[in-house]
C-alpha cells in the first residue's frame, strides 16, 4: 500500500481534478436539466419538442460518444478550447438528460390543483413553475437526483480517460501503465478517492431530503 503514500501528492492532485470536473458538471447539469424539464412541461409546443428531443438524444447515446462529439466534433465546427471544458461540456450534456427526467417526475408528483391555483391568481407559467411547483417537486426529486449525481461523479472517470487527464482515474492509469506499479494497491487508492466524494455526498443528500421534507 506504500504506493498510495509515496505518490500522495499525485493522488491529491487527481482527487482535486476529479472534484473540479464534478463541481462544474454538477452545477451545469442541474441548471440545464431543470431548464429542459421546464421545456418538457411547457404550454408552448416547440419548447416541448426541444425538451423531448434533448432527452432522447443525450439519454440514449453512450457517454463516450457524446464526449467524442465534444472533444473532436466541436473543434471541427470551429469551437476551440481546452479539453477540460470539452470534457465538462460532454458530461453536462449527458447528465442533464437524466436530471431533466428526475425533475420532471417530481413536477408530475405535485397535484395539478397547485399549478391551477397558481395560474388562477395570475402567475405566469414560469412564475408558477418556479415559485409553486418546483419547490414542492424538490421533495420527491432529491433521492433520484442524488443517484443521478453520484452516477455523474463516477462517469467523470471516463472524462478523465478522454484526454482531460490529471483526475483520479488518470492517476491510476499513470501509476500502473507508465510506472509499472502493482495494480491492486493503486486502484484501492483510486477507489478511496471516489468514496471520499460520493459517501459524504450521499450523506449530504440524506440531510437535504430530511430538511425539505420538514418544510411542509
Amino acid at each position: 500500500m506504500n504506493v498510495i503514500f509515496d505518490n500522495f501528492s499525485l493522488y491529491r492532485d487527481g482527487f482535486l481534478q476529479t472534484l473540479k470536473i464534478c463541481a462544474f458538471a454538477a452545477i451545469g447539469s442541474l441548471v440545464l436539466g431543470t431548464l429542459i424539464a421546464g421545456f418538457r412541461v411547457s404550454p408552448v409546443p416547440p419548447l416541448r419538442w426541444v425538451g423531448t428531443s434533448w432527452v432522447n438524444v443525450f439519454r440514449n447515446c453512450p457517454l463516450t460518444v457524446v464526449l467524442f462529439f465534444c472533444a473532436f466534433g466541436l473543434p471541427e465546427i470551429g469551437v476551440n478550447g481546452a479539453y477540460f471544458w470539452f470534457g465538462v461540456t460532454g458530461l453536462v450534456l449527458y447528465t442533464s438528460a437524466f436530471v431533466c427526467e428526475a425533475v420532471r417526475s417530481g413536477i408530475n408528483s405535485v397535484p395539478a390543483g397547485q399549478a391551477e391555483a397558481a395560474r388562477a391568481v395570475g402567475l405566469t407559467f414560469t412564475q408558477s413553475l418556479s415559485t409553486v411547483v418546483l419547490p414542492q417537486a424538490l421533495r420527491t426529486v432529491v433521492p433520484p437526483l442524488g443517484s443521478v449525481i453520484i452516477a455523474m461523479i463516477k462517469n467523470s472517470a471516463i472524462v478523465g480517460a478522454f484526454g482531460v487527464g490529471g483526475d483520479l482515474f488518470a492517476v491510476g492509469d499513470t501509476l500502473t501503465s507508465s510506472r509499472g506499479e502493482a495494480v491492486l494497491p493503486v486502484l484501492i487508492g483510486v477507489v478511496l478517492g471516489y468514496l471520499v466524494i460520493t459517501i459524504p455526498g450521499g450523506l449530504a443528500l440524506g440531510w437535504l431530503e430530511r430538511k425539505v421534507a420538514i418544510a411542509r
Binding site: P111, G113, Q114, E116, A117, A118, R119, A120, V121, G122, V132, P135, Q136, A215, R216
Partner: peptide, 17 residues
C-alpha cells in the same frame, strides 16, 4: 386577466409549501 378573476376551488388548492 386571471389576476382580475378570483377563483375558489373545491379542494382549496392552497400552496402546500
Amino acid at each position: 386577466l386571471r389576476a382580475e378573476v378570483g377563483m375558489v376551488f373545491q379542494s382549496f388548492n392552497l400552496f402546500a409549501h
